[in-house]
Design a protein around this nucleic acid. Structure first.
Lengths: 140, 140
DNA sequence: CTAGGAGCTCGAGTCGACTCGAGGTCAAGT
DNA sequence: ACTTGACCTCGAGTCGACTCGAGCTCCTAG
């Protein structure tokens, strides 16, 4: 991957740094997930600033926690509008935070159910090694 | 929705009970998420047993925690094969349990990042009410 | 006996977020 | 000058899990 000046990074470098593919980085730009289009070199190649990479680190967490692209775009757009939009940005983030907390709670509930089942199987297998494992009751 | 005998349930009843749509219940059946095809009335309508509904409660948790249909199908198939497959069933469940734990951990990490950002905005807004909110440093 | 709601099958459509490929350009080492 | 590998754009394809609709049948209450 191309190496760029000390303060600026090629798409390949950013890809390595963020774990996003170059394809995805271009896609995100096109989807408006950067405050402004990424700057280009004379030859037309993207060069990312440190700040953009910083934002990507956050953006990746927003995505991986399930924030839809349109909502991220909205947030970015607010940032782009500058001062005065902070309250709404906060609201967007808070709403998402709440959703993630709910998600975690739901997963933990699922985990409870799954783990119970795991325990049942584990117990029966431990008890029945070299023996017939229970064949009564619901089979699943 | 049609009401059925005391021990058996119509698709509408099961839908109400599990939160899955009738469409989805049929889809699941076709995808092999039941040990055997659901029994039918003389008129060709599905009638679910209590046991099947019991299983759906578990199945729903597996799905909602992200287990892919093919893996659920595999588990169901093992159940269908009867005694002797318990060890593999356990393994399938354990593998999924592990994935869910990882998912939770990832979400919690994302939550940490998001919450930090929320706090930053909250603090700045609290400090700057009726004043200009910070306009220095990275804008996002 | 008839009306209307619940079910049935089958095939097609949707949705979001990538992911890929073709066909070309740019740049750095030899 | 050439080769090679990283980039570029644009449009199309993929994937999983539903979701919907058309056109038909069934059943029960009035």
């Amino acid at each position: 991957m191309t190496t760029t000046s000390p303060t600026t990074l090629s798409i390949g470098e950013v890809s390595a740094l963020t774990g996003l593919s170059a394809h995805t980085l271009r896609f995100y730009e096109q989807e408006g997930l950067f405050v402004a289009p990424v700057r280009r070199t004379a030859g037309g190649r993207r060069c990312y600033t440190q700040e953009e990479v910083e934002w990507l680190r956050v953006g990746v967490k927003l995505r991986s926690s399930g924030m839809p692209l349109p909502e991220i775009r909205r947030y970015v757009q607010l940032v782009g509008e500058g001062a005065g939009t902070e309250a709404e940005r906060l609201e967007v983030l808070r709403r998402h935070e709440e959703r993630v907390r709910q998600q975690v709670a739901d997963l933990q509930e699922a985990l409870r159910v799954i783990h119970t089942k795991v325990e049942v199987y584990a117990r029966h297998l431990a008890a029945g090694t070299a023996d017939r494992v229970w064949s009564d009751g619901p089979a699943c």
